[in-house]
Lab assay of single mutants.
Amino acid sequence: TGIVNVSSSLNVRSSASTSSKVIGSLSGNTKVTIVGEEGAFYKIEYKGSHGYVAKEYI
C-alpha cells in the first residue's frame, strides 16, 4: 500500500512508460494498493483492473 504524494493529480498509465496511454488520474493523498514493480513504475490496482504510476510520486 502506498499514498499518492502530489499536490494536484497523478496520471495512471496503461503500461510502465511515460509514453503509454493515460487511463485515469489519482488525487494527492489517495491510498493505492501496489501489486508489482516495473522499472520506475509501480503496478497498482485501479478500477477493477491494473494501472501504472511513477514510483517517485508514491
Rank of each mutant, 00 (worst) to 15 (best):
S27R: 13
K55R: 08
S8P: 12
T1Q: 13
V12F: 02
H50I: 15
Y42F: 12
V4C: 05
S8Q: 14
S49Q: 14
E56G: 07
E38M: 08
K47S: 09
N29Q: 12
K55V: 05
S17N: 13
K31N: 09
F41I: 01
T30Y: 06
A16R: 02
T1A: 09
G24V: 03
G36V: 03
F41N: 02
K43H: 05
S49Y: 10
S27F: 09
Y42P: 00
I3P: 04
G24Q: 02
I3V: 11
Y52Q: 00
V32L: 05
G48L: 07
F41L: 02
V12S: 00
E38Y: 09
G28M: 12
A16H: 05
V53H: 01
K43P: 00
K43Q: 07
V12C: 02
S7M: 11
E37D: 08
G51N: 01
S19V: 13
R13S: 09
H50S: 07
R13H: 15
G51D: 00
E56M: 10
I44W: 00
I44T: 00
S19I: 09
E45K: 11
Y52L: 01
S25R: 12
V32I: 08
H50N: 07
G2A: 08
S15K: 11
I44M: 01
E45V: 15
I23T: 03
S19P: 06
G39V: 03
N11Y: 14
I3N: 06
T30H: 07
Y57F: 14
S27T: 12
I23S: 02
G2F: 07
T33R: 11
S19E: 11
A54W: 11
K43L: 10
V53T: 02
N5L: 08
V6Y: 06
A16V: 06
A54I: 13
A16L: 04
T30G: 06
K55S: 05
R13M: 15
S27D: 15
S20P: 02
V4T: 08
K43W: 04
S8I: 12
S7R: 06
V4G: 05
T18W: 14
S20W: 06
G36P: 00
G36R: 04
G28R: 13
V53Q: 00
Y46K: 00
V12D: 01
V22G: 03
G36E: 06
K43F: 05
S17I: 06
A54F: 09
N5I: 13
S7G: 13
S25T: 14
V35I: 14
N5G: 06
H50C: 08
L10Y: 04
S25M: 15
G2H: 08
L26N: 00
Y42H: 03
K21P: 15
T18L: 15
Y52R: 00
V35W: 07
V4L: 06
S27C: 10
E38H: 08
S20R: 02
V32A: 02
G2V: 09
I34F: 03
S49K: 12
G36N: 06
N11I: 15
E37M: 10
F41G: 00
T18P: 15
V53D: 00
S49N: 08
Y46F: 14
S49A: 13
G24K: 02
K55A: 04
G51I: 01
Y57H: 12
I23W: 03
K43N: 03
G51F: 02
K47Q: 13
V12E: 00
L26D: 00
I34G: 00
S19A: 13
Y42K: 01
K21M: 12
N5F: 06
G2D: 04
G39D: 07
S25V: 15
N5W: 08
K47T: 04
K21Q: 14
V6Q: 09
S8T: 15
S15F: 10
K55G: 02
S15G: 13
A54V: 10
G39C: 05
Y46G: 01
F41A: 03
A54M: 14
A54Y: 11
L10T: 11
S19K: 14
Y42V: 03
S9W: 14
S25P: 04
S14C: 09
T1I: 14
S9Q: 15
T18H: 15
E38K: 07
N5Q: 10
Y42T: 01
